[in-house]
Design a binder for these strands. Structure first.
Length: 285
DNA sequence: CCCTATGTTCCCAA
DNA sequence: CTTGGGAACATAGG
């Protein structure tokens, strides 16, 4: 369900309610979400987004070994024992139908609730009917994807360089999370429409000017969608259960057989790599 | 019964 | 190695 703007919305809202708060209790209803009780009693030091994944940072583990032992074992190149302890994060990926909801006081537990993280101030619950969401505890490691955050950095030159030798359809390229983090089906369709580029075009055939159009459209659309708190075309809701507003600004997604606002052609829906792809065949060349 | 779904991963084929 | 197709995961809704 959530793409970059939706996860960014959750990330910003989550900061307001859980930053510097201490986890009192974790309840895992779905055993598939194997989670370590290590997080209980820990304070949340940061909430960040990596593509479509949320990372809840935990205060570092208390050092159990005396520094003297570490120095003996690892030598004096290690300046302090603190560095031996990696920062832990709870990494949550909502996949197709995962939702996060904040509850101030004891309310009904909604259907399909998969876990609850309780704080003194309220509870963070995850709802996921299809159970595709993943939730793991791991070491924090920065870096990873090539264009980490198209919301802030997305240069046409970078894109052109990455895509120069590739023959895959430009839409598949934009949605490949190993290269670019955070773009999913809705926003890929919308940005290619805005840039007037056909989703099936091979990446190597695009001119620098076309990459510039895509980069500009991507930044504008993602920023706007964040300002709208996401797209509630079906079941997306923010942390407080509110709908987003970007569904009112979609130009092609879910507008199958509708009229193109630019050229009055007819919007089509066709399948590309198994995903419904909405586009205007007369103005996306 | 059919189809669809804002995602990712894995296996297999060309 | 690259790319694409399809299935799988599991459930709800039209």
């Amino acid at each position: 369900m959530p793409e970059l703007p939706e996860v960014e919305t959750l990330c910003r809202q989550l900061k307001k309610v859980v930053l510097n708060k201490t986890i009192q209790r974790i309840e895992i209803i779905d055993p598939k979400l194997a989670m370590i009780s290590e997080a209980v009693g820990k304070k949340i030091t940061a909430v960040t987004r990596r593509g479509k994944a949320l990372e809840i940072h935990l205060e570092r583990q208390a050092i159990t070994d005396p520094p003297l032992v570490d120095n003996v074992l690892f030598g004096k190149s290690h300046s302090s024992a603190r560095e031996l302890h990696n920062e832990k994060v709870l990494a949550l990926h909502l996949r197709m139908t995962g939702r996060l909801l904040w509850q101030d006081d004891q309310q009904d537990v909604p259907a399909h609730t998969r876990f609850t993280i309780a704080f003194a101030e309220g509870s963070l619950i995850c709802i996921d009917p299809r159970r595709f969401a993943t939730f793991v505890m791991r070491d924090h490691h920065p870096g990873g994807v090539v264009i980490d955050d198209p919301l802030h950095s997305f240069s046409a030159h970078q894109l052109e360089e990455l895509a120069r030798n590739k023959k895959l359809p430009v839409k598949s390229f934009l949605m490949d999370q190993r290269r670019i983090a955070g773009i999913g089906n809705i926003y890929a369709c919308e940005m290619l429409y805005e840039a007037s580029v056909n989703p099936w075009r091979k990446t190597c055939s695009l001119s620098l000017r076309e990459w510039e159009g895509i980069a500009e459209a991507a930044k504008r659309i993602l920023k706007r969608a964040v300002a709208c708190r996401g797209t509630s075309i079906s079941d997306w809701r923010d942390l407080f259960g509110q709908k987003g507003d970007y569904q009112h600004e979609l130009n092609v997604y879910a507008r199958d057989r509708g009229l193109c606002r630019r050229c009055h052609g007819i919007i089509l829906r066709e399948r590309l790599s198994g995903r419904g792809t909405y586009f205007c065949p007369s103005c996306q060349k």
